[in-house]
Simulated scan of single mutants.
Amino acid sequence: MKVLFVCTGNTCRSCMAEVIFNQMSNLDNIEAYSAGIAVVQESKTSKYTAALIEDNFKINISNRKAIQFTKEMLEENDLILTMTSYIRNVLSENFPKYKNKIYTLNEYIELKEDINDPYGGDAEVYKKTFNMLKKSIELLLGKIREDNGIV
């Protein structure tokens, strides 16, 4: 199973979610990826995102380049989880054939709020986003286990 996290620029939330998911998951044959719907060419992971990933997982993603979302990603991934309802709606409206596998992350785990974009904020704003993503991904991993009969 492939899970794709999608945000705006793929420098803050979705790349953070990708690492959190892959580091927290102990599920076989499930891997997360990430992309953005409006990537600035040659942009890299934000410094606060890179610092949080380094501090929490000892992984250096500071030179990771943002990845532009493509239609092919809809075909290649089993579950598309966006950070906001706006991004979910953009993808669902532009690619109605794949609507059944596009959700917001929090909608998929039955939470209401979007994952706010920390872009332009200070380290504390990024930390709040990181903590929200970590909590949501813990619930996501539990849902995937439950949906697949994994105890």
Rank of each mutant, 00 (worst) to 15 (best):
L81E: 01
Y33G: 02
A51P: 03
Y119H: 13
K127Q: 14
M24C: 14
L4Y: 10
T84Y: 04
S92Q: 12
K135T: 12
E31F: 10
A38H: 10
I137V: 04
A17W: 08
N148F: 05
D117P: 11
K65C: 09
S14H: 07
K47D: 12
E146T: 09
V19F: 03
A51V: 06
S92P: 00
I150A: 05
S136E: 04
T11W: 02
N89H: 10
S46T: 15
T11P: 07
S62L: 02
K58H: 15
L139K: 12
G36C: 05
E124N: 13
S92D: 05
S92V: 07
I87Y: 04
E93P: 00
L79C: 00
Q68C: 04
R64F: 11
C7W: 03
E76C: 02
Y86D: 11
C12K: 02
N89Y: 08
S34Q: 02
D55M: 14
T129M: 11
C12N: 11
E146V: 05
A123G: 03
K99M: 11
E146I: 09
K2L: 01
F95P: 00
L74G: 02
K47R: 13
M1C: 04
I61H: 00
V39A: 03
N56T: 10
K134E: 14
N89G: 04
E42A: 11
I144L: 13
K101Q: 12
A50F: 06
Y33D: 13
S46N: 15
I80L: 05
Y103H: 14
V6F: 10
D55W: 03
N106F: 00
E138F: 07
D147Q: 09
V19I: 15
D114M: 07
K2Y: 08
K44F: 06
I67M: 12
T70P: 07
Y33H: 13
G9D: 08
Q68P: 06
C12F: 07
P118Y: 06
G121C: 05
S34K: 01
A35E: 02
Q68T: 01
S14I: 07
N77V: 02
S136V: 04
S46F: 11
K135M: 11
V151K: 14
I115F: 09
R145Y: 05
V90R: 08
V19T: 14
N60C: 05
T129H: 09
I59M: 12
L74F: 06
N56K: 15
V6S: 02
L140F: 06
D55N: 15
L133C: 11
N26Y: 13
S46V: 06
S25H: 09
K112N: 15
I80T: 02
L52T: 07
T70A: 04
E113T: 12
I20G: 01
L139D: 10
E75W: 01
K112L: 13
S14T: 08
F130M: 03
P96S: 01
A123L: 12
L27H: 04
V125Q: 11
E124C: 07
K65P: 01
V3P: 02
L52N: 09
Y33R: 08
M16K: 08
E54N: 14
D122Q: 10
I144H: 00
Y33W: 12
